[in-house]
């Protein structure tokens, strides 16, 4: 199929993009790499009446070290560019997961900002960014704001981003101390998206007595949108037991059901992935 007809505008600067967005209606969509948006336009699941193409805004591309040791990643930075950047090697999770996303074409076109804005319920990267405590920097003609990623997703393909706002960068705090991560997912074989995927980061403070005093568990493919499994995190912090933590992976979440995995199977599957990810992170040195 081909998409329905739409109006197309190309922004030549962030300011121009924001001006175009200021007059946007709910039928306006921002086009970055296009590897999520264009396929669903072709199947007409998405029917935008206007696209604002930000693909040439080089000011939104690239990775910069922040004063506090964190990273600022331009929203238009592709998965491939991110993977090739030495600054991400300290975030072992990204180094692990980025090469597994999609295929070479997707990684060369897909952008980190697009992955966050699209809110695919089963994408790999948002779950990883959740456990890295990412922040989303957005701008509009009215000004700007910074939103914790944990407050950003609202539901499937839905976020707190307002119609006139543009994601300009993703910020990651410094990875410090005893940082250990792992990602475990079972792919839906046709789409390659996660049927159930778990990203974990655990850590110990120096002088913390050997206990893990940091635990972040991000889950994708299971709920309406990627989420942090807070109850599982708490259980891991108190018991240190991966299996006990995994049992809480879907607390308070309406688990998705489809032809590949019904609610019962998907619930069992994500518990396995969470437990295995935690076990792998514990085993991992450094």
């Amino acid at each position: 199929m081909t998409s329905l007809a739409f109006d197309y505008r190309r922004a030549d600067s962030v300011d121009q993009a924001l001006a175009l967005l200021a007059e946007a209606d709910p039928g306006t969509k921002v086009l970055a790499g296009g590897h999520s948006l264009l396929p669903i336009m072709k199947t007409r699941l998405a029917r935008p009446d206007r696209l604002i193409d930000i693909g040439r805004l080089n000011e939104l591309r690239g990775v910069n070290r922040l004063g506090d040791g964190g990273l600022s990643i331009g929203a238009l930075t592709t998965y491939s560019e991110l993977l090739a950047n030495p600054a991400i090697t300290v975030y072992g999770l990204l180094a692990d997961v980025l090469p597994t996303i999609g295929d070479v074409q997707v990684r060369n076109r897909g952008t980190i900002g697009g992955a966050v804005a699209h809110v695919d319920p089963a994408a790999d990267l948002p779950a990883c960014l959740l456990v890295l405590d990412a922040e989303v920097v957005v701008r509009s003609a009215r000004g700007g704001r910074t939103i914790a990623l944990t407050s950003f997703f609202e539901g499937a393909f839905n976020s707190v981003l307002l119609p006139d706002e543009l994601i300009t960068e993703i910020r990651l705090p410094a990875a410090s101390g005893d940082y250990r991560s792992a990602y475990r997912a079972q792919e839906q074989p046709a789409s390659g998206y996660a049927l159930a995927g778990a990203a974990v980061v655990i850590g110990r403070s120096t002088g913390g007595g050997g206990r893990f005093d940091r635990a972040a568990i991000g889950i994708t493919g299971v709920g309406e949108c990627p989420y942090r499994a807070s109850a599982a995190e708490q259980e891991f912090l108190s018991s240190g037991d991966p299996a006990a933590a995994a049992a809480h992976a879907t607390d308070g979440v309406l688990v998705a059901s489809d032809i590949h995995a019904d609610r019962e199977y998907r619930t069992a599957l994500i518990r396995v992935q969470v437990r295995r990810a935690l076990e792998a992170a514990i085993e991992r040195v450094g």
Partner: peptide, 28 residues
């Protein structure tokens, strides 16, 4: 291992595209 045409109880094809109908890939 992977292929099957899945319908709901109304006769709607649920495995209607290659995003839901898995063909074998060399890497598997």
């Amino acid at each position: 291992l992977w292929e099957g045409a899945v319908y709901d109880d109304q006769g709607q094809l649920l495995s209607g595209s290659l995003l839901d109908y898995a063909l074998p890939r060399a890497a598997w």
